[in-house]
């Protein structure tokens, strides 16, 4: 039997975190998703809230600045902090 190509995930703590009580993604807001230059944020279909989908943050802050409810916080990624 041939060897089976296998992938393994690397863990990473997301620098962008969301306050679910404030996020209005479930009301149709996508401001943070729209402005991220690297296209890292998305709305979780099950919760209706924003989340960080990819770990490629430039800590540039448009998402945090433009969020209408202050529901989003950007930390400097751990490797640089």
């Amino acid at each position: 039997m041939p060897f089976i190509p296998t992938e393994i995930a690397l863990r990473s703590s997301a620098p962008v975190t969301i306050d679910h009580d404030k996020c209005i993604g479930d009301k149709g807001c996508t401001v943070c998703v729209d402005v991220c230059p690297l296209d890292l944020l998305a709305i979780d279909k099950s919760t209706g809230k924003a989340y960080m989908q990819f770990d490629e943050c430039w800590y540039c802050l448009p998402c945090q600045h433009d969020c209408p409810t202050g529901a989003l916080k950007v930390d400097i990624p751990y490797l640089l902090r």
Partner: peptide, 12 residues
């Protein structure tokens, strides 16, 4: 590639 509203070297 991103969104014109916040793209490029001067996004902020």
């Amino acid at each position: 590639k991103a969104n014109v509203k916040r793209s490029g070297a001067i996004s902020m």
